[in-house]
Nucleic acid binder design. Structure first.
Length: 195
DNA sequence: TACGTGATCACG
DNA sequence: GTGATCACGTAA
């Protein structure tokens, strides 16, 4: 079942980042369906220095100010597409970065997109999972309850004891805010990034 | 540990 | 216009 818009428009982005663990991100592109369970997320709030919207709206981050429930795409290092889940209500720029998936559907399609002949670690990082699922900047601002891109609850129950929180990756420039424990991973999962 | 890669942003 | 920077991935 696709997540209801009310899941995304809540005000606490950290709670939403935690609750996205165990949910399933899917795409259907040219008739090809690929999906994976979310096993790693990071929360970003406009009030802290790690966030792209910390200094206000720009052309790039404008969709972060939309109502929760749309995708925010961002190209990093000229190569890697990153996908974020926009949260909170219109005018407030909070988002959750999806950092890793455990593959579920469309293994062959994902392997071909990654140009590998094995399933191992094809979605274990924010840049890799977008490539495996075929997500690029054309999805910027698109609904997460759409026909080409969506997140659903497949009934996977995640217990609090299975969730690890840690500082976010790669945001040293954020100073003290880099220490916030806003990264969430599933304990013991083989698909989280940087293993 | 090093560096490719190109959009983006904050300057003028 | 221009230069520094960057929510990574891979090779070594």
């Amino acid at each position: 079942m696709k997540l209801d818009p009310s899941f995304y428009t809540r005000s606490n982005v950290v709670v939403i980042a935690r609750e996205l663990l165990g949910k399933v991100l899917s795409t259907k592109i040219n008739g090809l369906t690929t999906s994976g369970m979310i096993v790693e997320t990071e929360a970003y709030s406009e009030k802290e220095k790690g966030c792209h919207a910390y200094k206000g709206m720009t052309q790039r981050n404008a969709v972060m100010y939309d109502d929760g429930g749309v995708a925010y795409l961002y190209l990093c290092y000229g190569i890697h597409q990153m996908v974020n889940v926009v949260t909170n209500t219109k005018g407030i720029a909070d988002a959750v970065l999806i950092r890793a998936l455990e593959p579920m559907t469309g293994m062959e399609v994902m392997m071909e997109r990654m140009n590998v002949s094995h399933v191992k670690r094809i979605t274990s990082g924010p840049g890799k999972l977008t490539r495996a699922l075929g997500i690029d900047k054309s999805f910027n601002g698109k609904s997460l309850a759409g026909k080409e891109l969506w997140i659903e609850d497949c009934g996977m129950k995640v217990k609090p004891a299975e969730i690890i929180k840690s500082p976010r990756i790669g945001i040293d420039y954020a100073g003290d805010d880099a220490l916030l424990p806003w990264r969430f991973t599933l304990k013991g999962n083989e698909w989280i990034s940087k293993m």
